[in-house]
């Protein structure tokens, strides 16, 4: 991977490293992010998958990959990456494969695994200094089973397991900060709707070694309840309202790669999605909208 940096959108790869024909929903924001990431990483990758929506990316005898893939389980994908990495290192050190046959180990996981069941294995892999990239497509719920509340579900979102009038009572876990607390080599938040920012971060991650996180907010037409054609707009609104800060952690410091200015009110984002409809209908819930706005405001007050 070159150290060069994408200067403009025109330089983004036009040839795709992920083939069409997968079983993902039409308009999947996670698939959009995945193909943008793989377009930069290239095909010398082995994707180690945790159970989630993308379990069915490869479904016998069909695979969308030009590189490699291993399906593991919901809890243990980073341990799968450990085994693959260790074995490749052994094969290389013993001269059984050459450098040109080496691969980048990429864990692919939804938020259900990344924020919850898989966190113990992830923490241990970071602590061991495993040389891998961890790509999380975060669609803020257990999307593969119908968008039940996960540890990534935002406060106030209505889900089948948080069906009350105020939606989910808990808070979205800050997985970026959880990673940063482990002092990894690199961590970044991205979104498919901002492909240049994403490509630059993946490029930087690829130039480093050690535990690296790419955390992608993944707009989900099925789980968030919107017409799939609006996926990119909703992704951009997540950034422009400040709800999804684009940032990276490298060399001990967190840097925001985009500071929305002016920041749009959060309702511009919330009102696009059925999971927040109860904030606006039948009666507007100003208290809860205000609470969500306040959290975002507080976040950005502490930035920079």
């Amino acid at each position: 991977m070159s150290e060069a940096r994408y200067r403009s959108l025109r330089e983004l790869p036009g040839v795709h490293a992920l083939a069409a024909g997968t079983a993902m929903c039409a308009g999947c924001g996670g698939l959009e992010a995945l193909h943008e990431v793989l377009d930069v990483l290239g095909t010398r990758t082995v994707v180690i998958n945790a159970a989630g929506c993308m379990t069915l990316l490869a479904s016998y005898p069909f695979t969308p990959f030009h590189g490699s893939w291993l399906y593991t389980s919901m809890a243990s994908a980073p341990a799968g990456a450990q085994g693959v990495r260790d074995a490749l290192d052994l094969l290389r050190s013993r001269g059984r494969i050459g450098a040109d046959d080496d691969l980048t180990a990429v864990v692919l996981s939804g938020d259900g695994s990344a924020y919850g069941m898989g966190l113990s294995a992830t923490s241990a892999a970071i602590e061991r200094g495993l040389d891998f990239i961890y790509l999380c497509y975060d669609n803020e719920g257990y999307g593969n089973t119908g968008q039940q509340t996960s540890a990534a579900t935002p406060h106030g979102a209505r889900t089948p397991t948080s069906p009350g009038p105020a939606g989910h009572a808990g808070e979205k876990k800050d997985l970026f900060d959880v990673w940063v607390a482990h002092r990894p080599r690199y961590a970044a938040t991205v979104i498919g709707a901002e492909p240049l920012d994403l490509a630059r971060k993946v490029q930087r991650a690829a130039s480093l070694a050690g535990p690296r996180l790419i955390l992608a907010l993944a707009p989900c037409p099925t789980g968030w309840d919107y017409d799939p054609m609006h996926g990119v707009d909703i992704g951009r609104l997540a950034v422009r309202t400040g709800i999804w800060p684009l940032k990276e952690y490298v060399d001990g410091a967190v840097v925001h790669t985009h500071v929305p200015h002016p920041r749009l009110p959060v309702e511009a984002y919330l009102s696009t999605q059925g999971r927040f409809r109860h904030l606006f209908e039948p009666l507007r819930n100003d208290a809860l909208i205000g609470e969500i706005q306040q959290r975002v405001d507080r976040y950005w007050q502490n930035v920079g």
Binding site: T145, G146, T161, S162
Partner: peptide
């Protein structure tokens, strides 16, 4: 105590709705 998985999820979703209502 609950955790979703296909094809069980409808059970906990139904109970969640009843507890909420």
């Amino acid at each position: 105590p609950a955790f979703p998985i296909t094809p069980q999820t409808g059970i906990i979703e139904t109970l969640a709705a009843w507890f909420a209502s």
